[in-house]
Design a protein around this nucleic acid. Sequence first.
RNA 1: GUGGGCGUAGCUCAACGGUAGAGCAUCAGUUUGUGGUACUGACGGUUGCGGGUUCGAAUCCCGUCGCUCACC
Length: 386
Amino acid sequence: MQFKILKTNSKARVGEIHTEHGIIQTPAFVPVGTRASVRGLSAEDLKEIGVEILFGNTYHLHLKPGEDIIKELGGLAQFMNWNGPTITDSGGFQVFSLGQAKMKGEDGEEDTLVKITEDSVKFRSHIDGSLHEFTPEISIQIQKKLGADLIVAFDECAPHPSTEEYTRGAMVRTHNWLLRCIEEFKNPETTFFKQYFYGVIQGGVYESLRKESAQFIAAQDTDGIAIGGVSVGESKKEMRQVLEWVHPHLPDDKPRHLLGIGEVDDIFDAVEMGMDTFDCVIPTRFGRYGIVFVSPSIGNVKNKFRMDLNRTVFASDNQPLDPNCTCLTCKNYTRAYIHHLFKVEELLAYRLASYHNVHFLVHLTKKIRQSLLDGNFAEFKKQWMS
RNA sequence: GUGGGCGUAGCUCAACGGUAGAGCAUCAGUUUGUGGUACUGACGGUUGCGGGUUCGAAUCCCGUCGCUCACC
């Protein structure tokens, strides 16, 4: 893989990831489009915003529309008229996510949707309850057909909290599965697109496990490295701790993806701790809930840079969502109008708020990147985080 | 005009003799590799008004005001 580091600042890096569909300037925020759609936004919107890479999900796309259709139609990027770089998750997180969910089985007893063994994961579709099985090989085969530029190893994300014993088991499975993923990734018979492969570090909140996992993953022949098992309910302090434990073992020349992050403070810290890309559902999920991100001086650490548009105080507020923002929503619409749209549950509410939120995090990350290039990251961070 | 029904939290209603509850709304939180949200708190009523019966009335009785329906 072509990964170029243009500049470093302590642990932080500015770089470029070159893919078949284009170049990603890192650090980069990766909006999540689980089902080949960043909810509420079109590919044209995303281009206009300045998004450089999208995140899709193997589990969801496998269920609908199915990887064969997407392969026939030219792969994920072409299918959704995005035509830019994409990354797919392995389905590993859904194993975690569905593992928390309950469904009534044939015997009427409540059961989890997931059964994990050393060889595979069996699970029921959340859509129709049908049985499915993922092995590391199947996950990679599906991802090869989906055709994202970057694909991710099938891992097990242990819930939080989990005992050290269980977390170790999940980590060992993740390691064993990685070797199988690599074999399948290299299999020319199942290769259709030019892709790059990321291994996933697990180990929960345990220092020795994180170290062991980081060393194991770093030693394998992968193009990039992802850090998983974060943003699953652990504290922010623990999440940062994990990055510190893992960092010394990461090879400098591979891009690093932090899975499931983040919020504003998380993005600053993730970049500072040497992460290159990070995906998160927050801008679109919050966009649907009526929570929009705001920059200083309205936004601050205390309010988490969030503004809840559902509040009545905005009913006649004639200002844009964020006075400092240059996005389409902020240039054209008022808080009062979007507040109203949320109150009457108009679809446009979700769209306008999601547009702003994606723009906000993408451009925050771009500004962080520029501050690293300009050598004033510390001052920029202080402007936001003080 | 005659007869009936109804007036309980901002709204829609519950409790029908033992000193009032819910949903929605409001306010404050939560949501990090997406099951189009949900969840957790808080605030909020001298039960239209006046009188009576009763140990005790939102509840029964009388009057009054307001709304509503039917009939003439």
